[in-house]
Amino acid sequence: MGSNAMNTTLDTTLNALKFNNLTLGYDRHPAVHHLQGEIPKGTLLAIIGPNGAGKSTLLKSIMGTLSPLSGDINYCGQKQKNIAYLPQLADIDLKFPISVYDLVSMGCWRKSGLFGGLSTLLKDKITDAINSVGLNGFENRPIGTLSGGQMQRALFARLLLQDASLILLDEPFTAIDTKTVDDLINLIHHWNHEGRTVLAVLHDMAIVEQHFPQTLLLAREMIAWGKTHDTLQPHNLLRARQMVEAFDRHAQVCEQVI
């Protein structure tokens, strides 16, 4: 998966990720332009910006499913398997005859591997994960019968089991009620206390202000990145709104140097 994006140079600082002049895009048209910066380990970072700002693109490229057009991502010695990712639209086949328990248990993949059985220890962990997202009693329900919020809870339970040091969440709270959002945010805080790095693409500014100490404001280019309060200044938000231009079919080759 995108081996050219994988820069395994060891970083002696306590960074989880480092972007070096990173440009991402599709068919040579940039979606994220010259992103520069680093994310210390244990950061709780919100990524905000208008639609089409390149937020999801950034997460995809961290996952290695999209190779950079130029620049690179330094994983600071972190292995790809330590990254967990919850996409905006998980392409889960809801008609597949499989239970909630089995869906959640996929999170054990790293420990159980291709062929290994689920040990009693792992089974306990699966049950714990299901309980901690409040889905007890739903274990044997087919996944197709879950509501949107319940499905999101199940996916968070799977993330729990993945035990990743870097967790990427792409709009995890879209179309989710406040009770569920509160429960899931508690989980995110819990992960953060355990020293995990969490990057979440969000649109709800109230949630960002209340729960995320750091914020990256993206509008194809980085508008602001730092403490949430500083990032969310009106002039930054205004600039972000103006930045996302229409797709330019005849765009010239970019000569910008950082």
Binding site: M1, Y85, D102, M106, L114, Q162
Partner: peptide, 22 residues
């Protein structure tokens, strides 16, 4: 032998891609 990755590939191919190259 391949039952587990096969089921995962059916249910949630994106997830399988994110954790394994199987």
């Amino acid at each position: 032998t391949v039952y587990r990755p096969l089921v995962m590939e059916c249910v949630d191919p994106g997830f399988l891609r994110s954790v394994s190259r199987a």
